[in-house]
Write a protein that binds this DNA or RNA. Structure first.
Lengths: 338, 338
DNA sequence: TTCGCTTGTGTAACCGGTTACCATAGCGAG
DNA sequence: CTCGCTATGGTAACCGGTTACACAAGCGAA
């Protein structure tokens, strides 16, 4: 591997001159610069970024810490981040916390000196726990997370109002007995969606304690919910699942039991995963632009890195949009658009 | 930020002793080590990895260069890589070549000094072009790519035999006129699948020049293929799309035209994306364990990094499995299992 | 007591690139 | 011809951790 000293020797100049020529810092005459560049080409010199980060005190890299890397959700987030990062000439260092607090601490620690900033998406953990591990000097933006007591910028989805709107829509289509399938207990997204559902049922539907079935965001838990619904003889004319995966399982379970969707029971999900539009009937859901979650967070981080103060922009809330499809079609609509 | 010198001063020892204590290199008495560790805790010291990589000449990071980050395919690959990398305590540095040769060169160059090894997935490019940019001293494994003339280890999917098997299966189910929807012209996966199809048609079906429609792996190109098929009045009793995405579009297009699947026309895809099993009828396809593509490549890279010679294991071919589902069901099967 | 050995600790050079500061050459003005 | 300025380039310290080597202390053996 060629070093800067090699280049300098080859070009017949000092390391300082070579460095200046390469970085275009002026104080170098055209012929000198040309000689240096020729040497660079000849030796195939590429600056060693480890050494560079020592003196420059920046790495042109951002660390991304996600709870898991499974499924389209995370792939879309990474894509959104990469889109913006690439534009700004930054690299992405991936860290996986694999769900545990200890892993998260390790992941954050191991990024010291490797990154200029951090994007963190803590799914279940309390922010207070994370605070101990975060380096206050390292710019950090939270993904899909209300930073709460921590004074850090974040991007989040308005799960509460999304769930509220969907519940309202179901009621508006004539449903009286709407059942909710909840997500993991400690997941904030899941809790907010449940709150939105409960509040809408109370205020719009006039129902005090609506039925709620347990779930964990997995397809299997949707199937189980369908069984509970049928065997428990729970009266229901609509089911609102806390995410699309569960809605998919639910529909399969209902079909198994001979129930028709939306004829007997309407179904709605949340997220608008690509699969949703391809089901038959297609799944009504709340559309979350997952990639924007990533790109927005990355843009915020870039601004912090540039030294700008975010002010009011330090909290960005993305509002999901209601997508009405086949699983909530009324009989008229079903005839009009099979 | 606390440095090693700070820790040494705090513990009342020299930097050398502090370093040895932290890295557990022996030659340090228990009380001395305890004092150092106490200082580490107190100052919240984390070694600066940039500085470390200078002397150690390793970074515990592997670079991953992908053509794009879109869709489940890449997400699965990254997940597979991460699974193995995490186990080995390695980090992932993501690079996106965004399709162009120039970008690829930049991505590879910018990883100099940042990574110990490289995983590269070149979709369309010729290996000869890449060779100029690859550092021979940097261990590299190709993903989903036959390294060809380059003497580098790789993991690939046996697209040819997969396509051959699927075509054979379609013919075995009574199809006579099978049409293929091809992938992008310069994509090697697509070309191999097309070759497998053509050869199977000739050898098993006795058909010399089977009909082939153009496509580009996108859902839309599947829809277009359906239109071409109908409007061109191309006789067909089965369609084999080069990937699942196009099969999905194709099915939608056929439904639009009033054709029933598999009644009028059987359909098959390739990849087994998660969506495949959820379609109705469910999509028959060749199952590729995409995550294994990533994890296998990562395991190979780890072995190279440990100094092992791969020998025969330097070329790993993953064989896809045929998954027969609803879109290729014969009428008897359709009655038996609706 | 002194020599020799083991064991623990310190000093300083080094990895590769950056940059503050200094030295020199070249030029015009006086 | 000398002075003084600027443009250009060189020297060396530094970023933070690692490690070869030197050194000192402690112990047993002669």
């Amino acid at each position: 591997m060629a070093t800067l000293r090699d280049v300098a020797r080859e070009a017949g100049v000092s390391v300082a001159t070579a460095s200046r020529a390469i970085n275009g810092l002026g104080n170098v005459t055209a012929p000198t610069k040309a000689a240096v560049m020729a040497a660079v080409k000849k030796l195939n010199f590429v600056p060693h970024s480890g050494a560079r980060s020592l003196t420059r005190r920046k790495t042109d890299t951002v660390g991304v810490i996600l709870p898991d890397l499974f499924g389209e959700f995370f792939s879309e987030i990474i894509r959104g981040i990469d889109l913006v990062a690439h534009e700004a000439g930054m690299h992405l260092l991936l860290g996986n916390m694999h769900g545990s607090t200890h892993e998260t601490a390790t992941a954050i620690a191991s990024m010291r000196g490797r990154v200029d900033g951090l994007l963190v998406m803590p799914p279940d953990l309390k922010p207070e726990l994370l605070a101990d591990y975060l380096d206050p000097a390292l710019p950090t933006v939270f993904l899909n997370y209300d930073a709460g007591s921590l004074d850090l910028p974040f991007v989040a989805v308005d799960n509460y109002h999304g769930a509220y709107a969907m519940t309202e829509a179901l009621l508006g289509r004539g449903a009286r007995q709407v059942v909710h399938i909840a997500g993991p207990k400690h997941n904030r997204d899941a809790r907010d969606r449940q709150r939105g559902f409960v509040d809408a049922m109370a205020k719009v539907g006039g129902v005090r304690n609506p039925a709620i079935l347990p779930g964990d965001f997995s397809e299997e838990s949707g199937v189980k919910a369908a069984q509970l619904l049928i065997e428990g003889q729970l009266p229901a004319d609509a089911v609102f699942a806390a995410n699309d995966q569960m809605a998919v399982g639910l529909i399969a379970g209902l079909a198994e039991a001979g129930k028709s969707v939306p004829g007997d029971i309407m179904v709605a999900g949340f997220d608008d995963i690509p699969l949703a539009r391809h089901l038959s009937p297609s799944l009504s859901t709340m559309q979350v632009h997952i990639d924007r979650l990533g790109s927005t967070a990355m843009m915020m981080l870039l601004r912090v890195l540039r030294g700008e103060t975010l002010g009011a922009a330090s909290a960005t809330i993305l509002t999901p949009a209601l997508i009405a499809r086949g699983t909530t079609a009324t009989s008229q609509e079903a005839f009009a658009q099979p």
